[in-house]
Design a protein around this nucleic acid. Structure first.
Length: 477
RNA sequence: GCCUCAGUAGCUCAGUUGGUUAGAGCGGCGGACUGUUAAUCCGUAGGUCAAAGGUUCGAGCCCUUUCUGAGGCGCCA
């Protein structure tokens, strides 16, 4: 039986004079005397004073960067500046020494790219342990938020038989031999002989199945991995990412907006209330990295300041039509600085969204009622017959954080839209039946979980907020 | 999928119009050091210049192809 105290608990209510046993990884080893220990229980470290005459040389030599050690000793008031208390080591156990001549990491700041390639060790750094504690915090807060509001957590399938969920390229799932798959008369691969007796893929969204849940249990949410085989090379896309998709019955687009805004603020508040030290560390990290940058490239607000500001103020709410009008009246539009055209009927490009969020409103913006031409078939047609009850929530630095809509509950309208957009009704017969039998107005949205982790941690690349990122040409670990 | 930039020591980078034996800081290793906070000081070893091909008397540098990474755009969350 191993007994140890977690460093976060020791530091929360330190009792000077008490004997403590702590275990963790060495973050720094200074002057052959001071060992800085972190065990992951929080952002804080505990300094251990090692008096050379009390230990044999072998033990002293084994202490080094990222070595794993256990220490028993007396907690005393620190004699140096920089920490309130420290431990004078009485006993040291070396659990795992680190051969520094071959260990990839170093006790200095390293690039995100290098750490990404060494993901087996990157969680030992201050930055990544903070990021992944906050990732946990956001996942926990998500489940708590919905549980406390009588939503049910619905596990939608990861392997799907729906060919068209309308959200991008899909990864095929097959048990057929890729070298010699069975063929039909026309020479095409015969998926009726495949494992499931049909063509199957990894899910791109749990929304359609979540609608089944909402139209029986009232309020449900999904929270699971989703997959997109898009060849995207950006800092905001992954091939495998996690999505939170609440779906609620007896709700329209206004209920949907309120839920999304309240939920996002709840998530941020949970982190501000419970993970202050990690946020302060990340805030400081960003400030340090921006020190040598030109003023206009720096963030206008620090991380903590921005999170607190986001929670305090209402999100801006506008329609697509208003957004177009605002952009057409903007300075960059008049000076022809935008690369893409802005006129009613075209989708908002990243440059336009950035102007709205970062320059005009300077806070999150909810845009609703988009033209039906470039939105999905299941979004509810508005009375103007031109727009649909879709909503996107745009965040500074992130872009689209949330995409959602009131769903089309009128079967005839839905059938017409599917026909218009070339979605085969026979493949989604079960989805149409939700309208034929006991349907009602309902709405929901999808939140890209990693984008939320990016916003809260201030990390600039989505690959650095998921432990083991999957992206084109990249599936290590 | 499109565009731009990059790949030189373990890491981060410098390397002039193509010219002798490719450099620095950090890290490593060896040593010193009993109050450090990115500890400090002294010493020292590290290189198939991404890969292949080409131009040239001569290529880290020029050309071609491939691979890898970063960033931007599109697609989206």
């Amino acid at each position: 039986m191993i007994h140890r105290q977690e460093i976060a608990n020791v530091l929360k209510s330190p009792t000077v004079g008490e004997e403590v046993t702590v275990m963790g990884w060495v973050r720094a080893w200074r002057g052959n005397r001071f060992m800085v220990l972190n065990d992951g229980s929080g952002a804080e470290t505990l300094q251990v004073v090692v008096n050379g005459e009390d230990f044999d040389e072998e033990t002293i030599r084994a202490i080094g960067f990222h070595a794993c050690v256990g220490v028993t000793g007396e907690l005393i008031e620190s004699q140096g500046a920089g920490q309130a208390v420290e431990v004078v080591a009485k006993e040291i156990i070396i659990y795992g020494a680190t051969d520094l001549s071959t260990y990839p990491l170093q006790a200095k700041s390293q690039t995100m790219e290098f750490l990404r390639e060494n993901a087996q060790f990157r969680m030992r750094t201050n930055t990544f342990s903070a990021v992944f504690r906050l990732r946990h915090a956001l996942a926990f807060a998500t489940n708590k938020y919905y549980n406390d509001r009588n939503f049910y957590y619905l596990h939608t399938p990861i392997i799907t038989g729906n060919d068209a969920e309308g959200a991008g390229e899909m990864f095929r799932v097959t048990a057929l031999d890729p070298a010699s798959p069975p063929k039909d008369e026309d020479g095409n691969v015969d998926y009726s002989q495949d494992f499931f007796g049909k063509s199957t893929h990894l899910t791109v969204s749990g929304q359609l199945q979540a609608e089944i849940g909402a139209l029986a249990m009232g309020k449900v949410y999904t929270f699971g991995p989703t997959f997109r085989a898009e060849n995207s090379h950006t800092t905001r896309h992954l091939s495998e990412f996690w999505m939170i998709e609440p779906e609620i019955a007896f709700a329209d687009i206004d209920n949907n907006q309120d839920l999304a805004e309240d939920f996002l603020k709840y998530l941020i508040n949970h982190c501000l209330d419970n993970y202050r030290a990690d946020l302060e560390f990340l805030d400081e990290r960003i400030k340090q990295s921006e020190k040598n940058m030109k003023a206009e490239l720096r963030r206008p607000m620090g991380l903590l300041e921005m999170l607190e500001f986001t929670v305090k103020d209402d999100f801006a709410r506008i329609t697509y039509t208003e957004a177009i009008r605002l952009i057409q009246g903007s300075k960059p539009y008049k000076k022809k600085k935008f690369e893409f055209p802005v006129e009613w009927g075209t989708d908002l490009q990243a440059e336009h969204e950035r102007w709205l969020v970062e320059k005009h409103f300077k806070k999150p913006v909810i845009v609703r009622d988009y033209p039906k031409g470039f939105k999905a078939f299941y979004m509810r047609l508005n009375d103007d017959n031109e727009t649909v009850a879709a909503m996107d929530i745009l965040f500074p630095y992130i872009g689209e954080m949330v995409g959602g809509a009131q769903r089309e509950e009128r079967e005839d309208v839905l059938r017409a839209r599917m026909k218009e957009m070339d979605v085969h009704a026979d493949e989604l017969a079960w989805y149409l039946q939700l309208r034929t039998f006991g349907g009602c107005p309902h709405a929901g949205f999808g939140l890209g979980f990693e984008r939320m982790v990016m916003f809260v941690t201030g990390m600039g690349n989505i690959r650095d907020v998921i432990p083991f990122p999957r992206a084109p040409k990249s599936a290590d670990f």
